[in-house]
Simulated scan of single mutants.
Amino acid sequence: MPSFDIRTADLRAVNSLTKYPSIPTYHALDSRDGGLGEEVVPFTGAVTLTEKVDGTNSRIILTPDGEYLIGSREELLYARGDLIGNPALGIVDALRELAERLRAEAADADRVTVFYLEVYGGRVTAASKHYTASRQVGHRLFDVAELDRWADLLALPAQRIAAWRDGGGQRWLDEAVLVDRAARHGLATVPRLATVDATELPRDLHKTYAFLADLLPQTRVALDGPAGRSEGLVLRTADRSVIAKARFQDYERTRRRRTGSR
């Protein structure tokens, strides 16, 4: 296998290869008005429910040459040893120490490993007030991808890399391995709320909203002060082949538009 060198690698390709894919809403979202329809993402078997934390999607990319990159959802912000990093949303400051530790503990010369974390609190989003009263910043792991064929993938044209990613090409750790990996590295994950059979999931809009409210009357990841509102749920099959999100705001917006209330 060719050797990887972060100084000569096509970082635009690395960025595209390691972006987190978009997650559909559990009830289909109408792009015209932001309302939810009746159709739901179909699940079968066991479904793990985790809290969706309202922060910013971030990633730590461990490269085969023992280096690392830190990125937001859309762009790379910092490489190990940089004198100046992009300060966007405080992601680099929040994750640099963790990245150094993961580099020592989890780097693999045979693959690219990507840890996906939600950075929240501080001044990250308008919802930060629900997690902290003193501008503390936290992070929670929600997924890990391992890319074994990185050399072949990085040689592809940009459009094919994007199509591979959006078509489900990334290999994700399944639920049991993810939880074990997080424990091994002392990483807090997004809260596991329940595992239910897919037949137990509500399909009606009103019942789904009630289901959210019952599971998450408030966030479970408050950093200090009283716990505020949660953003919602993420639903996953154990192997992560099916994934969807259910956000309070989507159901509330739909209800307002259907009833004409504000």
Rank of each mutant, 00 (worst) to 15 (best):
A109K: 01
R236A: 11
F248M: 11
L187W: 09
E146R: 14
P24D: 08
R12N: 15
Q159E: 12
L212A: 03
R135F: 06
L147H: 04
R262M: 10
S134E: 13
L193F: 06
E74R: 14
L69W: 06
L193I: 14
L49C: 04
R149D: 12
A151T: 15
A127W: 06
R96Y: 05
L193P: 11
P157R: 00
I60L: 02
I161N: 01
L153I: 13
Y68E: 08
D33S: 05
W172F: 14
F248L: 13
S230M: 04
L154I: 10
G169V: 00
S58Q: 03
I60C: 06
Q170E: 15
Y68Q: 02
T132V: 13
A182P: 05
L173V: 09
A94M: 08
S31T: 07
H130Q: 15
R171A: 15
A163V: 12
V144W: 05
V190P: 10
Q170C: 07
T195E: 11
R12I: 04
T25R: 04
A13S: 08
D30V: 06
R240D: 11
A151E: 13
G186H: 07
A222P: 14
A106Y: 08
V234K: 06
Y68P: 05
R103V: 09
T189D: 01
Y209I: 02
L95G: 03
P24I: 03
L235S: 05
A46T: 13
P42V: 02
A210W: 03
S128N: 13
T18L: 04
V124C: 06
L69M: 12
A46E: 09
P24V: 06
G186M: 12
Q249C: 04
D239S: 11
I23F: 07
L178Y: 12
V190A: 15
A176Y: 02
Y120H: 07
W164C: 04
R7A: 12
A238M: 14
A162N: 08
W150T: 02
K52P: 13
L76P: 10
D5Y: 06
G55L: 09
Y116I: 09
S72D: 12
F4S: 02
F4C: 00
W150M: 01
V40A: 01
E75K: 13
V144C: 08
T113Q: 04
T125Q: 15
A104D: 15
V179G: 00
